[in-house]
């Protein structure tokens, strides 16, 4: 049982505030991804949970034990580092056995666990090699095996796939998901790669400037961003945003067209729609096509709508060309609204 609770955790480095009062609960066996651009505080938060940084204020609980004053080795965690940190002076076997030896397990148990995790990660033929004789992908497997061999309550992963090439990353991603699902551990996984986050996570916590902007399951994060930032960060290409002015009775004027939206007292809102949630039907937004990028499965069309950049994903059979005017009709149930002052979603 390893539920992780972060209570009001903040961290300052000198005068720089890296984290602003983070509150989060990660349930037992959940796969939680901390997602954000570099400098958003996601790695700092992970390192605070690991015990490699101390929080300036706040509490960290793992299971029913408060751990923020404990050294990392007393927290029941294992970690996979961005640069793997596979010890160069030890063989693969000894690397995987490192934590087990530190915990003074007997040789038979160590051998059994090392062999089992090595098999799991398909590196059983490399056990006598040194790190310097391995490829990046193999080192990555050793780092994961070393963490799994601990049979920890919690595994922390700090951008573990970011140093692999694209094809290997795809392969390892799927493998990690399978292996971790079988291991019954609570996982916290830090990444800046939204595809990685979406594909792995039970729940994603999107972080921005030291705060958690939204924490929810991947589909919810994608469909219903809680804030402008989430919509503009998640999705490739990201959401389109247009200015909306009040038209009365729940009607809003967007680029000369009227849409029904929230009953809000405000004069202005932000209208948002995902590029794939528009259709090439008449009566929609008037768009001047700037660039057409055929991507095989579909065409990505970059347009100008009411002076703003607007991207649409349309069928690759369409004959739309740059310079043309087209009509893009948003799907009504996919339209989202944001408050331009608070940047938060308005229902």
């Amino acid at each position: 049982m390893a539920e992780i609770q972060i209570k009001n955790v903040a961290k300052t480095f000198g005068s720089y505030q890296a984290l602003h009062s983070i509150d989060m609960t990660i349930s037992d066996r959940e796969f939680m991804v901390l997602l954000g651009a570099s400098g958003c505080g996601k790695t700092t938060l992970l390192r605070i949970i690991a015990g490699l940084e101390t929080p300036s204020v706040g509490e960290v609980w793992i299971g029913d034990k408060r751990v923020d004053h404990l050294p990392p080795r007393q927290r029941g965690i294992a970690m996979v580092f961005q640069n793997y940190a596979v010890f160069p002076h030890l063989t693969v076997f000894e690397n995987i056995a490192f934590g087990l030896r530190m915990n003074k397990l007997d040789d038979a148990t160590i051998k059994e666990r090392v062999n089992r995790t090595a098999n799991l990660m398909h590196i059983e033929q490399l056990l006598q090699r040194y790190s310097g004789q391995l490829s990046g992908g193999q080192r990555q497997r050793v780092a994961v095996a070393r963490a799994l061999a601990m049979e920890p309550d919690v595994i922390l992963m700090d951008e573990p796939l970011s140093n692999l090439d694209a094809l290997l990353r795809l392969e390892m991603r799927a493998e990690l998901k399978g292996v971790l699902a079988d291991s019954n551990t609570t996982t916290i996984y830090v990444t800046h790669d939204q595809v990685e986050a979406m594909s792995l996570a039970d729940r994603i916590a999107v972080m921005h400037e030291g705060r958690i902007v939204q924490a929810n399951n991947p589909v919810e994060i994608y469909r219903n961003p809680a804030a402008h930032f989430v919509g503009s960060f998640i999705g490739n290409p990201p959401m389109n945003f247009l200015n909306a002015t009040k038209g009365g009775k729940g009607k809003w004027n967007v680029a000369g067209k009227s849409f029904s939206g929230p009953q809000s007292g405000q004069e202005n809102l932000e209208f948002a729609i995902r590029p794939e949630d528009v259709t090439l039907n008449g009566g929609g937004l008037d768009a001047k096509v700037r660039i057409v990028e055929p991507l095989g499965a579909h065409n990505l069309v970059t347009c100008d709508v009411d002076g703003s950049l607007f991207r649409a994903v349309i069928d690759s059979d369409s004959k739309v060309k740059a310079g043309e005017h087209i009509s893009l009709a948003p799907m009504q149930d996919r339209i989202r609204w944001f408050d331009p002052q608070t940047t938060l979603a308005v229902a």
Binding site: L52, P72, R73, N83, A85, F87, M102, R146
Partner: peptide, 17 residues
Amino acid sequence: PKEYYEAAEVFGASNWK
């Protein structure tokens, strides 16, 4: 590299270890 010390720390090594 500092990362080796952090890894050792996480995997249970005391200062002396």
